[in-house]
Computed example of a mutant assay.
Amino acid sequence: MARVSQEHLDARRRQILDGAARLFARNGFHATSMQDVLKEVDLSAGAVYRYFSGKDELIAAIVKEVLGEIRASFEDAARQSPPPPPDLLVGAVLGRTLRVYSALDDDGGSVFPPLVIQVWAETVRNKELASVLEDVYTTLRESWVRAVEAYQDAGMMPADIPADHVARTMIATVQGFIAQQALFGPAPLEVLQDGLRALTSMPSARPATEGSQLG
């Protein structure tokens, strides 16, 4: 019997993951059965179970892949010294990640935003995946802190604001944009980039006194 090549095995595993990702993004993890996955990828149960013992293992593989892609994208972009401005840095990271999953959507969009929402929800009940998410978040924070410190050293950002505060805010901004896309439909990445560019170019205007009020 002819030996199956590693390339073939990898391609088959990729086929299963892509099909499951489409279903999970569309219907959610728990509304999708393994039978649904078999139908989506047009493979026998034996072919699929050769790679994944069940739905939980399939979910874990996709969650780790999604979170790993986010981390790798950011780490690659943040290696420049100093990093590109925040709008360009976020655009490079999010743009690369969206492109990875855009081919999975029959409508030409990206399954990434709804898939991320499903991942966030899944980590609430799954301690193993919650640990993976926490690890990725910690890595992102550390990477963003280094980027902000580089901005501050280059005089691109005020040095009196804790770098960790900026890091958390930038992560929250990206998370919010992903949530908007998942809930309200696709939006050009330029929307986020333009908004970040406008916000980061504003001069500081702190109140003169503690009791000052707007208006």
Score class of each variant (00 low, 15 high):
84 P>V: 07
201 S>R: 11
22 R>L: 13
27 N>M: 10
62 I>Q: 06
19 G>I: 01
111 V>G: 04
145 V>I: 14
82 P>T: 06
102 S>M: 03
48 V>E: 00
175 Q>L: 09
5 S>R: 13
110 S>L: 01
209 T>Y: 12
78 A>Y: 05
6 Q>S: 09
15 Q>K: 15
41 V>D: 04
60 A>E: 03
192 L>S: 01
60 A>P: 04
95 G>F: 11
21 A>I: 08
172 A>G: 13
6 Q>I: 11
159 A>G: 12
164 D>S: 08
207 P>D: 12
41 V>C: 12
56 D>K: 04
74 F>H: 09
123 T>V: 03
69 E>Q: 08
153 D>S: 15
48 V>I: 15
153 D>F: 08
71 R>P: 06
34 M>L: 15
16 I>W: 05
196 L>P: 01
52 F>N: 02
181 Q>T: 08
119 V>F: 00
128 E>G: 00
32 T>H: 07
2 A>C: 11
43 L>R: 04
179 A>M: 02
68 G>L: 13
161 I>P: 08
213 Q>M: 12
100 V>S: 10
204 S>E: 14
131 S>H: 02
73 S>I: 14
203 P>I: 03
20 A>H: 02
107 D>W: 14
120 W>K: 11
131 S>N: 06
174 V>Q: 02
36 D>H: 07
156 M>H: 10
173 T>E: 05
89 L>S: 00
124 V>Q: 10
85 P>N: 06
22 R>V: 14
213 Q>E: 11
45 A>Q: 06
152 Q>I: 07
198 A>S: 14
102 S>A: 08
87 D>V: 11
2 A>D: 02
12 R>Y: 12
142 E>L: 11
63 V>H: 03
113 P>G: 04
204 S>D: 14
125 R>I: 09
96 R>Y: 03
68 G>M: 11
206 R>F: 09
149 E>I: 02
13 R>M: 00
207 P>M: 13
157 M>G: 03
140 L>A: 07
58 L>G: 11
198 A>G: 11
213 Q>K: 15
187 A>V: 09
163 A>C: 09
95 G>P: 03
90 V>F: 02
98 L>K: 05
170 M>Y: 04
132 V>N: 03
147 A>F: 03
99 R>D: 14
92 A>C: 13
48 V>Q: 00
32 T>Q: 05
32 T>G: 15
67 L>E: 05
51 Y>R: 15
62 I>R: 02
122 E>I: 07
172 A>E: 02
3 R>V: 15
74 F>M: 10
93 V>T: 07
34 M>D: 09
121 A>F: 02
49 Y>A: 13
198 A>F: 08
